[in-house]
Design a protein around this nucleic acid. Sequence first.
DNA 1: CAACTAAATGAGTATATGTTCATATATATA
DNA 2: TATATATATGAACATATACTCATTTAGTTG
Lengths: 109, 109
Amino acid sequence: MKAHKLPPEALELVAARFRVLGEPNRLRLIAALEQGEKNVSKLVSETELTQANVSRHLQTLTEAGLLGRRKEGLNVYYFIADESLFKLCDLVCSRLQKDLSAKAAAFKR
Amino acid sequence: MKAHKLPPEALELVAARFRVLGEPNRLRLIAALEQGEKNVSKLVSETELTQANVSRHLQTLTEAGLLGRRKEGLNVYYFIADESLFKLCDLVCSRLQKDLSAKAAAFKR
DNA sequence: CAACTAAATGAGTATATGTTCATATATATA
DNA sequence: TATATATATGAACATATACTCATTTAGTTG
């Protein structure tokens, strides 16, 4: 599946998925859910974001299919629904680390 | 390297990298370069974007370390500098395909 | 039913960013 | 040196989106 074969609408879908991940607070929420499902209040207190803001980000992530939700009484529990998330983040992280340590090394000379 | 261990500044870096990929025209440029390096004029004619626009996107991609540039006379040739790009895109693409065919299947019942 | 709680949402604002037009810069060539 | 060409960039504008405040919705419990 090569990118150059993708029609424009498909590219927009791919871009949209990357865009969802392009927001640090959303990454924080994802990171918080790595340990397992949590309800909104828990995520609010852990991230120290406003409740409204957390709620909106969770909506974005859920609509993208990255998170799932489960209602239980008054609480709504969110959880990672797309395990490929971790592979994605790890790829980016390790690449960034490589780049940054290369720059750091260049400084020392 | 787990995401929940990353400090906020690192998360911003990761998010920034995703954001660079979150623009369809930039993905088009990347796709165009999959076949090998090309100069700006070539990229302009292939993508049918304006020269100014292509130039700006190439700048964004280069500053992010995803592309490299090489000057040769009047021309500037751009090329993929980060091969992990393809793994990233393929991960997203295959995930999207799976999601979409699941939805398509759900329609048939 | 009334009061309470957790989560979602409408409306408004601020900021970031994609795009274009016009122009500047750099390099080549007559 | 003058002219032409490829690419980059300043300025302006339009759009998208992150955020907050206030309120609503859904569900629980007295």
